[in-house]
Design a protein around this nucleic acid. Structure first.
Length: 284
DNA sequence: CAGGGCGTCCGGCTGC
DNA sequence: TGCAGCCGGACGCCCT
């Protein structure tokens, strides 16, 4: 499940692998993944185009191609790999970018949830999702006053709002659980009732957890690997995610698992005091 | 109008 | 051994 650190790790490997490369042609096997423009236009526009840079915004990969930007979202299980032209094709290969040096950048996606949008450069900032994204965790503007401004009056659980990409960009289910545990905040807490100090700890832990995971090459949970095919190591630093039934690494209490906002949620009920309204509470 | 909750997409995997 | 149900990021829809 690639979140910001995993997408950043993929970006770095793709930037190295695609350095100075030009797309010779593109073969789209699963048309549904191409959202804009239509597949014929998508393929025609990409023919013979150089890859100038690979950027990232939140969980989106942006390939700078001169007049156009290719916006790629991996969603749950999308992944890229570099292959020689004759290499046997692995299952769930949906898009193949043939490069002029003979290699192939292949996009695979078991869940078929990933998306591609090829946009004129001047349209990128207005592109629906990209245009509404909140600050990145490492932005200076992502601080406690900003969060208080965005969360005041909001009654939804803090977890749901940290997953809202317009509040802060790039967090997913794994990192939100980790951030809230380290900040000592129960995920069911109504966002608008958090104190200034609570918001400060959330901001601090968000920045720390994301930066540390990027240093570790992301978390390899389920299928994630970088563009080089190498796994990350941050999964060994996870303190609550996937650890239900095991002792809290801080206090020893058994980690509980429930649902918040429809998402599987891991919590230590000693380190993260449940509010009266909590759906995940002691005694079960 | 906007907040909030839920259904949808998909198929490998879990558990009965 | 067979198979129904689970799971989730972004987004659409619906209700309040």
């Amino acid at each position: 499940m690639p979140e910001l650190p995993e997408v950043e790790t993929v970006r770095r490997s793709l930037a190295a692998l695609l350095q100075g490369q030009t797309i010779a042609r593109v073969d789209v096997r699963l048309h549904r993944l191409i959202r804009t423009p239509d597949v014929a236009m998508f393929v025609a526009t990409l023919r013979g185009v150089p890859v100038l840079a690979v950027r990232r915004r939140a969980k989106y990969l942006l390939f700078d191609l001169g007049d156009h930007v290719l916006v790629s979202h991996l969603r749950m299980e999308g992944r890229y790999g570099m292959y020689a032209a004759g290499d046997p094709e692995e299952a769930h290969t949906h898009v193949v970018f043939s490069l002029t040096d003979g290699r192939e950048l292949r996009y695979r996606d078991v869940r078929q949830f990933g998306t591609f949008d090829l946009l004129p450069v001047e349209a990128v900032n207005d592109f629906s999702a990209l245009g509404r994204l909140g600050p990145e965790p490492d932005d200076e503007g992502f601080d406690a006053p900003y969060l208080r401004d965005r969360l005041s009056e909001r009654t939804a659980p803090i977890k749901s709002l940290l997953l809202d990409q317009t509040v802060v960009a790039g967090l997913g289910n794994i990192y939100v659980d980790e951030i809230l545990h380290r900040a000592g905040i129960h995920p069911d807490r109504p966002a608008g009732r958090l104190k200034r100090a609570d918001l400060g700890r959330i901001v601090e832990q968000t920045k720390q957890v994301i930066a540390e995971s990027i240093r570790q090459g992301g978390s390899s949970i389920k299928s994630y690997v970088s563009g080089h095919g190498t796994p990350g190591a941050f999964q060994f630093s996870l303190r609550v995610y996937g650890r239900q039934g095991k002792p809290c690494l801080t206090c020893g209490r058994e980690i509980a698992k429930g649902r918040v906002g429809g998402r599987g949620t891991h919590v230590c009920l000693s380190c993260q005091k449940p509010p009266r309204t909590a759906t995940i509470r002691p005694g079960r």
